[in-house]
Design a protein around this nucleic acid. Sequence first.
RNA 1: GUGGAUGUAGCUCAGCUGGUUAGAGUAUCAGGUUGUGGCCCUGAGGGUCGUCGGUUCGAACCCGAUCAUCCACCCCA
Length: 420
Amino acid sequence: MAVTIQAPKGTHDVLPAEAVKWQYIEKVLRGCAADFGFREIRFPTIEHTELFQRGVGDTTDVVQKEMYTFEDKGGRSITLRPEGTASVARSFIEHGLAGGTLPFKCFYIAPNFRYEKPQAGRLREHHQFGVEVFGSKSPVQDAEVIGLADTFLSRLGIHNIRVHINSIGCPVCRREYHAALKEYLSERKDELCGTCLSRLEKNPMRILDCKSDICKAIAAGAPHCVDYLCDECRVHFNAVQSYLTAMGIDFEIDPNIVRGLDYYTKTVFEFVSENIGAQGTVCGGGRYDGLVRELGGPDMPGLGFGSGIERLMMVMDSLGIPFPEEEPVKLFIACADAAADETVQVLVHTLRKAGIACERDTAARSLKAQMKYADKTGARYVAVIGGNELSEGHIELKNMSTGDKISCGLNADDIAAALN
RNA sequence: GUGGAUGUAGCUCAGCUGGUUAGAGUAUCAGGUUGUGGCCCUGAGGGUCGUCGGUUCGAACCCGAUCAUCCACCCCA
């Protein structure tokens, strides 16, 4: 038992009973994306390591300590995708989509890999529904993307979610803000916790997100990025808020949202649930106007979000949101006599070719056991075929929920007709 | 990477202060009239008590190490 092989730490199997739920969620997500004019994009699971170093940012935790990186047999440094945005941006540039119809709007459902220490809502392989837009710098697009997130959550029945938004400005206004923030924090250097002390030089904005009580208190009095926005960023952020208000989306401005990926500019947002433990962010994203250029493409504004499907599932389960029932087989044909075996096999095969879902016993079990199996799998009808049916040339289709029986000829056409 | 909790049948768990062949419920399979499910009854299979080592006459129970899982920090979806 101890020598059996388990799934690697932080990964999970999705068994058939659970897979049905995944299919449902994916269907809702796809439908929602389509309604907003987003088309699916697929991209490789592996990328050149450099893509994430340049795209996500060399100093981020994700790149510094969480990537599954290895050298392939050709000596190239390859990385298992830790997030989707960089891949989409790469693909957008590589295929010259900037020369096509803009804005380019796409979505994906794909696994991401990060070498994390697992806990509730945090895995080493997790699946993300992501959405990206290139080619619009208008605040309407921000509102549309946030509106898309709001819509799919609502369609999934997830309503008690808090929407936090913030603006972290553009490189111009952020420089000013950083200076002000550093000045404020430097005066309180002695009180900061160890990790925050090291963040002071590298990325002072992260201190605003520290969980330590002392740092929280210090952060509470810190200058806010929103107060340092340049005119352009301020107008943009105000417009986003107006749109959201007009759309009836409840949000709160949270000056402490600091996303951990370097590419974000201007609008950033998080959808947070309080039902699933410490890792409550169910959807997070923002604008990244500099990313495409950073990756060697044209000047091209962009924005998007990622949403963890495992976390969505956790929220839905914690709220007791029901999932649609699995569609069972239409007919189970039981075999009561070895002499009928081949007839049963020909029948199920013919019916399946005609598009009728049906099953038979393949474990040589008793009639009673076959009935139990049909019952447990939820088969709508059961037909028993034995010596009597073979000689009389007709069978009975038993409705398993009512017990009623329909009589029909012992052939696929009659059965198909009777089942309609 | 740091900290805390937990590891007994497929699943949920019991196992009194260490004492002989480790239990229950559930699930699985088979029977309960010879060809008909859901309820009920009977029976069967299934565990080297995470692993290794130590203490002891004797350990699932005590000690140590290790591995795994879970939760929190960090970070993020």
